[in-house]
Design a protein around this nucleic acid. Structure first.
Length: 588
RNA sequence: GCCUCCAUAGCUCAGUGGAUAGAGCAACGGUUUUCUAAACCGUUGGCCGAAGGUUCGAGUCCUUCUGGGGGUACCA
């Protein structure tokens, strides 16, 4: 429809004013005014030599004469508001109302994209920050799939490095052979406990050193337990048997724990990468870079790249002791990823604190000519903060993912029971209901916010189930399904020339824009576009529901139309919620 | 210091250079013999951080300033 209008305006400008070769832009008409699309004529008044009103009026007249699809127009100052004829909306409804995959586009057809998300460290459990990452990564993948892209979801497990050694060391020193079975703790929780323990042990040692007259900074470098961890990393890279054994055992615990959390969050992956498998490839690449003089070696043996010519600093690629760092691993991973899948685009869902890292990574890949540097895209999302301040995982001050999900579940359960809507449902159905509603509240609360922005997570607000929330949208869906159940026959809608009431038309126009939202969400990689869109749909449907009778409508044609609209709204909500990883329930 | 992102209602957030800046929450009031009240309708609440500039038109673009977040050579 937009294209048609643009053609009309373009023809009008040419015939009336001899204006050609200009990019015509139209926008949605603001609610306060009558019309569907608006064309702003201000920029053209200089050429038309007429006032804005006259220019717009002449153009409006021209369009009305040349198209049956525009039923009327009005002019406010320099704004030409065009009203689309009802038959267009009716035809759209007729075409789409039973389309269960309504909204799908072929926008990204033939393009293959890899989306890396989650990417946890194996030394501690998943927390609120990971939750945002997981939800974003999964949702963006699904949005791109919905747009026809071939998407490979990837999880890069950071299973090696000094941080892992810290957990291992603390476990060896203080664990007394504790296991998930013996402790009853989820595997990731158990390992996380020892990561916190390490930091406490180290803190004590640092305090002691400081007491003996050494500076804080120096003490933090010299703490014996830190030295031990560093030695352990060396042993690990050398393949020391005992170290490897403990490492493998503890990682298995963590994976089992993560798996449970992923399952509950609804995240899945097509492929897993392990940094323990990719860092050697990275090291090799560093050697190649050295021989090509892209990198250089300092006297202490550490390897660097000088990026001052690119406006950046110097960056470390290998430590003086020869062990690899984050960057080394990421070079190797990028190479392996490209070898495996040959995606033209590789998206990294990683927090914005690492923007610098990815800028450097991209440059290095470019210079080394490996791993498809041009396709690298860092989807940089904002940090999650609590009303009380920032999350601090080193001190164990976080919002734990599992606990958070459980709270949402309980909240949904409490609210459902309070409303007394549990009648006739069996235990398993109830569980499913609470789970679906609780997770919807959590997911929607996080995804409705623009990913690039930092967000404040208020636990009390997040468990709200009213207003602009996931459950509100689910409720609208359940309400529609209830109406459709009440009819319980095939909807038999045929295009009629009947007049659309305002709430009907508003809803239809909004539903028509789903594809546009789907496309935009994929372009800007933002589930928030979908979330905000579907919230408007739910609001609009509820308004329509209050204003217009459906089952009680006596005019059969109108009744069928409203049923068809309900059907289309239900399909739209279901598909949109799916893109956010949110399920629907038939009643709630 | 340098780089970068951000600043919109009491709170959390929307706002492709266009019209009178919008939602939700919170506060107050109303709607159910009628298709699900987790809903709907209304009231209160704004120098869009400040000052300049570009433009017919700026919350949106540019400059400066203020305040905050993040990054910045051996954590990841």
């Amino acid at each position: 429809m937009e294209e048609k209008i643009i053609e009309l305006i373009s023809a009008g400008l040419k015939d009336l004013y001899q204006i050609t070769d200009v990019a015509i832009k139209i926008e949605d008409t603001k609610k306060e005014f009558e019309g569907d699309y608006t064309f702003v004529v201000f920029p053209y008044t200089r050429i038309t030599k007429l006032g804005p009103e006259q220019t717009a009026d002449a153009l409006g007249k021209y369009i009305l004469e040349h198209s049956k699809d525009i039923s009327s127009y009005n002019v406010v100052k320099g704004f030409l508001n065009l009203v689309i004829a009802d038959h267009i909306w009716n035809a759209f409804l007729h075409e789409q109302f039973s389309n269960v995959s309504y909204g799908k586009t072929q926008f990204g057809k033939g393009k293959k994209v890899m989306v890396e998300y989650s990417s946890p460290n194996t030394n501690k459990p998943l927390h609120l920050g990971h939750v945002r990452n997981n939800l974003l990564g999964w949702s963006i993948s699904e949005i791109m799939k919905f747009n026809g892209y071939d998407v490979v979801k990837v999880n890069l497990i950071n299973d090696r490095g000094i941080h892992i050694c810290k957990s291992m060391l603390a476990w060896i020193k203080t664990g007394n052979g504790e296991t998930p079975d013996s402790s009853g703790l989820k595997g990731d929780k158990l390992v996380g406990k020892y990561y916190v323990a390490f930091n406490e042990l180290m803190k004590a040692e640092v305090a002691q050193l400081v007491a003996s007259g050494i500076s804080q900074e120096e003490a933090e470098k010299q703490a014996p337990i830190l030295k031990e961890a560093q030695e352990m990393l060396l042993k690990w890279e050398a393949g020391d048997e005992e170290t490897m054994h403990i490492w493998e055992m503890m990682n298995e615990w963590v994976y089992a724990g993560f798996e449970l959390t992923y399952k509950r969050l609804g995240c899945d992956f097509d492929r897993y990468y392990y940094e323990s498998n990719t860092y050697l490839l990275g090291k090799k690449a560093v050697d190649v870079g050295l021989s090509k003089n892209i990198f250089y070696k300092k006297d202490d043996g550490s390897v660097w790249i000088d990026l001052t010519a690119d406006g950046l600093d110097q960056k470390l690629l290998l430590r003086a002791d020869g062990t690899s760092v984050y960057m080394t691993q990421d070079i190797g991973t990028a190479m392996m990823k490209y070898d495996d899948e040959h995606c033209e685009k590789s998206v990294y869902v990683v927090g914005n604190e690492q923007e610098y890292h990815f800028k450097v990574l991209k440059l290095i890949l470019e210079k080394l000519e490996v791993g498809n540097a041009s396709g690298l895209y860092h989807l940089s999302y904002g940090m999650v903060e609590l009303p009380t301040g920032k999350l601090k995982s080193r001190e164990g001050k976080t919002v734990d993912a599992d606990e958070l999900i459980e709270e949402m579940y309980e909240s949904a359960k409490f609210k459902t029971n309070e409303l007394g809507k549990t009648e006739g449902l069996e235990e398993a159905e109830l569980h499913h209901l609470y789970e679906t509603i609780g997770l919807s509240a959590l997911k929607y609360f996080i995804l409705k916010i623009d990913p690039t922005r930092k967000m404040v997570f208020n636990p009390e607000e997040s468990i709200e189930l009213q207003g602009n929330t996931g459950p509100f949208i689910q409720y609208t869906y359940a309400r529609i399904k209830s109406v459709l159940r009440g009819y319980n026959q095939q909807i038999n809608y045929s295009v009629s020339e009947l007049f659309l009431l305002k709430p009907e038309k508003d809803l239809l126009v909004l539903l028509y824009k789903f594809e546009q939202a789907v496309k935009e969400a994929s372009l800007v990689m933002s589930p928030a576009v979908i979330a905000n869109y579907i919230y408007e749909v739910a609001q609009s449907y509820n308004h329509f529901y209050h204003e217009c009778s459906i089952l009680r409508e006596e005019n059969e044609q109108v009744k069928q139309r409203r049923l068809a609209m309900s059907q289309l709204a239900a399909n739209t909500i279901k598909n949109a919620l799916h893109l956010l990883g949110i399920g629907t329930v038939e009643r709630m």
